Simulated assay, not measured.
Amino acid sequence: MRLYFFNPDSDLALADNGTNYIAPASARRMAQDLALLPVWYAGADSAVLAPSAYNADFLRQMRELFPLQAVLATEPELPDYAGAEVLPWGWNPAVRSYLLRGGICESRLPAPRLLAAYRPLSSRLRAVEVTRRIRDCYPRYTCGEHYLIDNMADCGRIVDAMHVCLLKTPWSGSGKGLNWCLHGFTEPVSRWCGRVLREQGCLTAEPIYNKVEDFALEFYSDGQGGVYFAGYSLFSTNEHGAYAGNLLASDGQIEAVIARYIPLDVLMRIRASLRTELAAIYGGIYIGYLGVDMMICRREGVEEYVVHPCVEINMRMNMGVVARLFYDNFVASGSTGRFCIEYFPINEALRARHGQDIRDYPLVVENGRVVSGYLPLVPVTVRNFYRAYVLVR
């Protein structure tokens, strides 16, 4: 038996690194609203930890259309899964403590010493190392500069020298922990840097590139030294850098998009180099998905494109993998679409948009696969502020 658990605050919990970490209200809201999301990638003999009632009703409706095999598990039922293999969105000391208190056997959870090893491997600093090595191998086709900063003097010097740059904390959630520094080392930037250095010990600075596409290479690490390519992710972000959605398309179609900008053989060589790098860093210690976020960037002043080979490494489940698995398992051949996560500050606005999408994009499902239309992936209720859905055309 496998037990899946959606904890999207995992990176924030790693930044805190405490067993009693409490997520911000927005992260707790997202975790509750999207708790049922793992049913779309959980296999047979599995359960998804989520609140009951409305999730149970929604799951029954979805089973009439799709071959979903996971069952619903509620918090009071955790002792029933004491010996299950637990698969959270991401590992951290707080989620281990929560599951242990809930009744999961300690032998089924990563040891504290292993989680201590996971923390630096989950940091954005790993992307600094990998980017440098990939750039050395493919200087003609790549970009990507990262400056590691561990004191205020260097912070001021580097930011003023770059003037326009993006500062990042080592650990943070999607779109969080970013400071778009557009006017040099101002007083607000100085305060932000000081706080990050006190709390996390360092930060990184990098240029703001002329980005034309966000994409990712998804891998799976078996913990025995093997890392395997698991598919492509072509995604979009909002103006703050937070994840917005994924293209639902085949790996071949996404490859064709990337090949508009760089030769396909170069992409294959970079992919092989990344797999080698990941195997050396993660392959012998970590079991689970690894997402390498990348960018296609345009060189300033010329019609020439390069790839940033390692913007970030996500050592956890991620939305790109969810979109990849959903397309492969639940979208009809020949159809394409979008997988999206959206936040609404007002519940009534979310429900109004949900109702409008149902009317505008009628759902057509054949043989357990979406041919076209709008499909919510989690229930939309009077309490939601987040929704996850696909729109297939």
Score class of each variant (00 low, 15 high):
L99H: 04
C202L: 01
N210A: 12
I262D: 09
L49W: 05
Y147K: 08
A279W: 01
Q253Y: 10
M294K: 12
V189W: 02
V48L: 10
L290Q: 11
V322K: 01
Y286T: 10
L363R: 02
G184V: 13
P93G: 05
V370I: 15
M162N: 07
A205L: 04
I254Q: 11
S172Y: 13
W180I: 13
G252K: 02
F219A: 07
R298H: 06
L3H: 04
A153R: 11
D154V: 07
S174G: 06
Q200G: 12
M1L: 14
P38A: 13
E64N: 12
V159W: 05
E213L: 15
E312S: 13
S97H: 09
A332G: 07
R260H: 06
I346E: 15
F185S: 10
F326D: 04
I313H: 09
A111D: 14
A279T: 14
I346R: 10
L114H: 05
M30T: 00
R2F: 09
L34V: 09
P79R: 15
M1N: 07
V189E: 06
G184F: 10
S97I: 09
P120F: 12
V292Y: 06
V86C: 02
L377T: 13
P67S: 09
N367C: 07
L115H: 01
R140S: 14
S122P: 01
V196R: 12
E312W: 00
Y98F: 13
V86M: 05
M152E: 15
